[in-house]
Amino acid sequence: MLDKQIKERERQKDLQRLRGFRPIDDDFMRCLFKDNIPLVELVLRTITGKQDLVITDCRTQKDMKRLAGARSICLDAYGTDSLGQKYDLEIQRADRGANPHRARYHSSVMDIENLNAGQEFNELPNTYTIFITEKDFYGKDEPIYHIERINLETGEPFGDGEHILYVNGEYRGDSDLGKLMHDFNCTKAEDMNFRLMVERTRYLKENPKGVEEMCQVMEDMRNEAEYRKTIEIAHTFISMGDLSYEKIAEGTGLSVETVKELAKKKDFVPGGDME
């Protein structure tokens, strides 16, 4: 009975949170984009200015492979267009999440993901790392900041195919980009400009199936956060070296096998990806 009451309270909290969600909240954005290539295509066309851009594949929460010992990342939305170009679309509400070094790392991990043994370096696809920031990250009132490498002596583009864009989430001009950033900050579907944004937002906030989908996502997030916390506690005990694997498993509720696997991971980063 008590568990049922706790679950009901959590559900009511989730419904309240759902009403306040905006597309610029990354958890909601992932659900907006999930299995919705037309919406991803609309957003990328608006940001890049490529009106003929065709997205052929898009995944949310994409785990990227890494070199041994390097930090892995999970991309908010990862897409491929008809020319084979790759797009990493990230929502960053806090300035620290949009650190230029992070953008550099995201871009480099996409390179690792897209060049296999035996391929030539010139087979690397063009990549676009796009950060949509809630505030104007550079504070210059520009709608988009394009980050490109150039040859300082000649002033010419380096031409390596890497592109990094910072989109100003505060921008509200009359252009499609201004309208899109307006939509990204709306809590209500009826206040949005773009039909695809309206339809998907209305589904996730008003349709019973969509609401249930969002509530499940929020419950999964809570469970994942609790699991990660348990993993960090277990790793702390492992690092201390005072307890047996069996005792750590008993204290954390993890299996002995899981504890042993954690002990093997020399590159474990608390709060980060384990794979």
Score class of each variant (00 low, 15 high):
residue 101 H to N: 15
residue 101 H to L: 15
residue 101 H to F: 11
residue 102 R to C: 05
residue 102 R to L: 03
residue 102 R to F: 06
residue 102 R to D: 00
residue 103 A to Y: 01
residue 103 A to H: 00
residue 103 A to F: 04
residue 103 A to I: 08
residue 103 A to L: 13
residue 104 R to F: 02
residue 104 R to G: 05
residue 105 Y to Q: 03
residue 105 Y to I: 00
residue 106 H to R: 10
residue 106 H to C: 01
residue 106 H to N: 14
residue 106 H to Y: 15
residue 107 S to Y: 00
residue 107 S to M: 13
residue 107 S to A: 13
residue 107 S to T: 10
residue 108 S to F: 05
residue 108 S to W: 01
residue 109 V to M: 06
residue 109 V to C: 05
residue 109 V to Y: 05
residue 109 V to H: 02
residue 109 V to K: 09
residue 110 M to G: 09
residue 110 M to W: 08
residue 110 M to T: 12
residue 110 M to P: 10
residue 111 D to E: 09
residue 111 D to K: 03
residue 111 D to A: 04
residue 111 D to I: 00
residue 112 I to N: 09
residue 112 I to W: 11
residue 112 I to Q: 04
residue 112 I to P: 06
residue 112 I to H: 08
residue 113 E to K: 10
residue 113 E to Q: 12
residue 113 E to G: 01
residue 113 E to P: 05
residue 114 N to I: 06
residue 114 N to T: 10
residue 115 L to D: 13
residue 115 L to T: 12
residue 116 N to S: 12
residue 116 N to G: 11
residue 116 N to K: 14
residue 116 N to T: 08
residue 117 A to I: 15
residue 117 A to M: 14
residue 117 A to W: 11
residue 119 Q to M: 15
residue 119 Q to N: 11
residue 119 Q to H: 11
residue 119 Q to V: 10
residue 119 Q to G: 10
residue 120 E to P: 04
residue 121 F to R: 12
residue 121 F to N: 10
residue 121 F to K: 12
residue 121 F to W: 13
residue 121 F to H: 11
residue 122 N to F: 12
residue 122 N to E: 14
residue 122 N to G: 03
residue 122 N to D: 15
residue 122 N to Y: 14
residue 123 E to Y: 00
residue 124 L to R: 07
residue 124 L to N: 07
residue 124 L to I: 10
residue 125 P to Q: 07
residue 126 N to W: 08
residue 127 T to Y: 02
residue 127 T to R: 04
residue 127 T to I: 03
residue 127 T to S: 08
residue 127 T to M: 05
residue 127 T to E: 02
residue 127 T to A: 00
residue 128 Y to L: 00
residue 129 T to F: 08
residue 129 T to G: 09
residue 129 T to C: 09
residue 129 T to S: 13
residue 129 T to Y: 05
residue 130 I to H: 04
residue 130 I to W: 01
residue 130 I to R: 02
residue 130 I to P: 01
residue 131 F to N: 02
residue 132 I to Q: 11
residue 132 I to T: 07
residue 132 I to M: 15
residue 133 T to E: 03
residue 133 T to K: 06
residue 133 T to F: 04
residue 134 E to A: 14
residue 134 E to G: 06
residue 134 E to L: 15
residue 135 K to D: 12
residue 135 K to L: 13
residue 135 K to F: 04
residue 135 K to T: 09
